[in-house]
Design a protein around this nucleic acid. Sequence first.
RNA 1: GUGGACAUAGCUCAGUUGGUUAGAGCACCAGAUUGUGGUUCUGGGGGUCGGGGGUUCAAAUCCCCUUGUCCACCCCA
Length: 441
Amino acid sequence: MASSSYQAPRGTRDLYPENLAVIRHLERTASRLSRAFGYSEIRPPLFEETGLFLRSLGETSDVVSKEMFTVPRRGKANDASSSVTGYTFRPEGTAGVARAYVNGGFAQRAPLQKWFYVGPMFRYERPQKGRERQFTQFGIEAFGAASPTLDAEVVDLCMRFFEEIGFGDELEVRVNTMGDPSDRDRWCEALRQFFAPRVAARCSDCQERFERNVFRLLDCKNKACQDDNEGSPALSEVLGVDAQTHQTDFLKALQALGRKPVVDPTIVRGLDYYTRTVFEVHYPQLGARSALCGGGRYDGLVEEFGGPHTPAVGFAIGFTATELAMAELGLDESAAVQSIAAESIPVAYCVSITPDDRPHALALAGRLRTHLAAAVVCDHREKSPKAQFKEANKLGVRFVLVVGPDERAAGQVVVRDMQTRDETRVELLQIAAHLAAATEA
RNA sequence: GUGGACAUAGCUCAGUUGGUUAGAGCACCAGAUUGUGGUUCUGGGGGUCGGGGGUUCAAAUCCCCUUGUCCACCCCA
């Protein structure tokens, strides 16, 4: 189908100029909002030692067990003195950022760090609606504070992001707690004891989950399995006092911020590092892939990476699903997006009448570029004057500058305003000032 | 990894029970008397009908294989 025999790798897409305005809007909003909340940008590498992700995400997680883009280490592959077996393109941002936090010595010299990042992530998955092998995430990570008010502020920042993009009441924040590690261990044990005698009667997926991650038995969509969940031990039964207090204070703080979270016990994040607060933001109309954002607290991760015990909380927003939701709500054509698209429209097109005029039109464009903020272009395809006007119109250019034999003889240029169709003759030396003034008005 | 649908021009798609040089709209390029745009009119370029094999006098159309895409499951942003 394509004229080229090469195609973009499965699960990736080319972002052409015409599609980039929406993405830029998301990037700029992320950056502006993060700074407003006191977060600074961090850029860790796009790939890390494979072991980093094994350690942080958990070897049984789907991400690690079947979705990693990994390249083997070259040369010293058999070097037993090195623990590095290979490198993996980051499937998520938290692990790399936490590693950078430890390596930078922040835990000792300035424990409180609030960081954000925007960039590509990679997962070797079967692509489908809202899911790609290379996708972009905007994430924030706040280290060094254990207070539930920080959890609430993080959720607020997340919601503010969507509000700035133009979302309204369509979004839903769902929150839950995973407890502290000891709570989770107790809960896990209780669940295993509860389900061990009955797992054989459940669906094949659940048999898998029982071995891999018992928590997931709880959100199985199979009706029979849901019924079977009746009477299973709840985390709240084994939740420690500290984690419990954290959760109630977190909810209070959210209310103080005017947020109305839905407490949803089925939110059990798939990654090992979460503790206490977990949350997701959903756009329910999106169906299968309705989660736009996932996040939570991970108080043990920094320690896991060799740093001192450091509480931390963060989230990641996926642009792919966000773009889909935006398109559904018409937000991809918002004034903000259109104004970004307009940035790449040239302000002027220098038309040459005869072949002899071409070098002069080219030179005029060149001179104007140093004086004007917006782009100035001219023809390079030997088009007729009429065709040049057509192209200028197609580009949406505001002014056409006509360079012909008459104008050259007079040391002037005809400036045509494509909106009003007014034409005025302007001295060569005053064109930049003329255009600047006309653009202001 | 499992299942389903689809694959014709740059894009969106027609193509009747297999039958002559495969079409439309949009886009692109060029014209419609003298140096000027958005409408209209005329003309033009562009397709190994995803690829390979088979059935047939004849295949875009039927069969097999292959590659790719989309959708869903698992799981996740």
